[in-house]
Design a protein around this nucleic acid. Sequence first.
DNA 1: GATGGTTGAGAGAGCGCTCTCTCACGAGAT
DNA 2: ATCTCGTGAGAGAGCGCTCTCTCAACCATC
Lengths: 331, 331
Amino acid sequence: MRRPTLEAVAARAGVSRATASRVVNGQTTVAPHIRDAVQRAIDELGYVPNSAARSLVTQRTDSVALVVSEPGTRVFSEDPLFSTAIRSASMELEAINKQVVLMLASSPKSHARVERYISGGHVDGVMLLSMHGADPLPSALSRLRVPVVSYGRPAVPVDIPFVDNDNVGGAEAGVRHLVEAGRRRIATIAGPQDMIAGQDRLTGYRNILRDSDRRSIVAVGDFTRESGAVAMRQLLGDDPGLDAVFVANDLMAVGALQSLRQAGRRVPDDVAVVGFDDIEAAKYTEPPLTTLRHPVTEQAAAMVRLLLNLFEGGPTDPIILPTELVVRESA
Amino acid sequence: MRRPTLEAVAARAGVSRATASRVVNGQTTVAPHIRDAVQRAIDELGYVPNSAARSLVTQRTDSVALVVSEPGTRVFSEDPLFSTAIRSASMELEAINKQVVLMLASSPKSHARVERYISGGHVDGVMLLSMHGADPLPSALSRLRVPVVSYGRPAVPVDIPFVDNDNVGGAEAGVRHLVEAGRRRIATIAGPQDMIAGQDRLTGYRNILRDSDRRSIVAVGDFTRESGAVAMRQLLGDDPGLDAVFVANDLMAVGALQSLRQAGRRVPDDVAVVGFDDIEAAKYTEPPLTTLRHPVTEQAAAMVRLLLNLFEGGPTDPIILPTELVVRESA
DNA sequence: GATGGTTGAGAGAGCGCTCTCTCACGAGAT
DNA sequence: ATCTCGTGAGAGAGCGCTCTCTCAACCATC
């Protein structure tokens, strides 16, 4: 016994398949008593439209892919930002009745799989979470003539609408906070320079230091906790007299705090620390972390709006959202 | 200009649609030179099969739903276990060429959406991550006559194959460790009692205490960090002389450590702490957390295997995986 | 009473694919 | 030379749905 078809519904209601279809799709050109009869047949049979058949004729699937182009471990276990972005985007899309197909594109092999899937017509559009400059996926997808929006400015100049937060402005605000607190030797733990966020946040740091006539002291991490700890030790070795550090993300800041503690530095008394992202854990560090919050949820919403505009021909200008300095105890 | 169809490929290669289809699907009953001609046509046109049309006739979709039935915030931002499970399951499924459709079912409204989607034939099977006993989704889905497997034993007795870790045994091992270290007053911060993991871990705790002739001291949390902190304060108020606490998950253990620090207790000197789950953060607490590791990745793999068996008629007995005590400095 | 317009419902094509059935062809057996 | 059989390829039905086109029925208008 298979699932009931529209044909069965129509037969039971004593109408044609076309009329049954009209009722299913909520068209108004059906007389009330007929509509009721069809509806009753639908309920009795437990009819649910076959999506494959429908999208075969409509050429729509009502689902969009959320492609996460990062090494898998990084995405989930480490950086909570990805998780939040995924969750927010999912909820936004579900609100407009689009289904989310999550795809992890961590290896070249899976890249090929993603491309095949996307071009197979499984989805109406793509939301791309890709952070690395060298990632070939943005340009590959944009070639596929499928609507694509990106979370984060694509590193290669490719014509994809995107949503990003104001990394430069945020970093400037964070470092300015340190300057205004009277800190003299402000170091930074920068993010990886093959990522836009890493580049831009370093740019913001440099902008303020230049303007305030301080020397820049830079160590580079890769946005992981561990790399933050390593970079902090290195900075302390290079310049034991530093009294502040701007860390390009909270995860590295957590590692930095650890190294500072081990080195016997008090935070913020000896060294002030400012992070970036305002992840959940930032509230629970010792001391709680001063950081820059960016509205991940709003970004996801903006991305969905962008994608919708792509479908329907609305404006698709990039959207840059501001960050907000959250002052806690570490600076 | 639309995407090329099989028809176009066939025409270009000078064969029939049927033969082109045979080549696409890798059948061997095609003469080599014909196969080459078709393959060339495919490459030249950039042909990709239309999935809707294919699954309309095959009645398969080659994708499975990963339904996460928890309040959204909890799932991602808080508990890294969900993330790991999702990632692992995704990778396992992708390895066998099944696509993952991630669905968050946080509200009754989204439950309805999920059910509609599942019964709409979008997916071949369902992997269910549901932890709460009161969740109506397991039974609802099992009624849909769709292959379903569950991560974690369903609380209601419903005939769904599942994978779980040995919560009772793990808790026993954790508490036994405390007993063997000579701890006398061993408290527990239990998980929510409407969750199987919460119940079973409390059972394990009670088993050992009973056998070792100690009094049980119980506070109940809800698996969040905050609730762990609150419960720890409460326990210290109830029994200031306690010298150990078994916490039903690491997230709560992190909160408990915080409360212990604030109360001036040294860990493990004054109070030993054992957690459960071995999340990433357990390595970075002060001091690092002794905890019970369960192999989330293997669990996900087992779940995929179970689902495959459901498709193909293999064994579908529940799979219970053992936990492993990871001794760090907190106990 | 003939004409025109409006509304509601059916007929039927066709979306792109798979798969069974059929058939042509050539090799080997009789 | 005839028959059987295996092999490779085509014809065509049909998966379940949407949507255009057509048409019947009804009312209003002249």
